[in-house]
Computed example of a mutant assay.
Amino acid sequence: MAALNISLEPHLVEILTPLKPLLPSELATQLLPYVSEPALPTVPYPLLQSISQWTRTAEGLLVLQSASLDPHSYSMVALLAGTTTSPERKFAAYTPEKSPEEAEALKRAERRAITYLINALLSILGSGFAAWWAAGKTGWRSEWQVLFALLVAAVVAIAEAVLYLIWDSRRSNKRPRRKLKISPEKRNQAVVKEVEASRGETGVPAGLRQRVKG
């Protein structure tokens, strides 16, 4: 999986710029292209994570205090606020999980649909056989028996198809539709959970897909 990027907003550049002379040489070198003019549009998530982790170390806290910088400004929640995750990429729309009641209702609807189709098939076959048998009793030739049976079966099949479409349309109209509404607070909570899960890890959290609005 490719590393995630974070949109480099002006306020993020303003927060990171004072850190450039204070960071360890390796982190300072990595940060330099993102606080220089012209600034890049995005900054790698792992870089922000490394900077945030350094500011929580004893050395980092001491350096920030000596420079009169607020350590809380460099938490991942503060750094991600108002930014967009990988704006250059397109993520699939989020689909909420079905509740147990919705899942059970869907299973019942599927069973009913299967039962209806089986009954329809039996009706078609039964009607065709009955027509063939009745035509034979009247003395029709075999080819006429078959044609009459096929005609009756086709009429029954069309009728069953129409009835199924009507039933399925009514079922779809009655099915409740859930609208996903995610408040900014919930977005922030999702990011906090991802950040907490990523602490102590060197990789980028694979589930971080949310957009955080300040």
Rank of each mutant, 00 (worst) to 15 (best):
Q189Y: 12
E110C: 01
P176K: 13
I114D: 12
R187G: 14
R112W: 02
A159I: 10
E194A: 11
A159L: 10
R187P: 06
S127A: 15
E143I: 13
W133H: 04
S183N: 10
A153L: 02
E143T: 13
K107V: 10
L122T: 04
A159K: 08
L106C: 04
R141W: 06
Y116S: 13
K137V: 04
A135T: 05
L163V: 00
V195T: 06
W140N: 07
A157W: 03
V162Q: 00
L125E: 08
R170W: 07
A120D: 01
F148D: 15
Y116C: 00
S183G: 07
Q189L: 15
P176M: 12
K179Q: 14
F129G: 02
W133D: 04
I158A: 15
I166Q: 04
W132P: 03
I158K: 12
L121V: 05
A161V: 00
I114V: 14
A113N: 11
R178V: 14
A109N: 07
S127L: 08
R141A: 09
R112K: 04
G139L: 08
G128P: 00
A113V: 09
K186V: 15
I166F: 03
F148N: 14
E110P: 03
R175S: 08
K186A: 15
A135K: 00
A135V: 01
G139V: 08
K174D: 10
V155P: 07
L122M: 02
S142R: 08
K186N: 12
L165I: 00
E185V: 13
L106M: 05
I158V: 15
Q145V: 09
K137C: 02
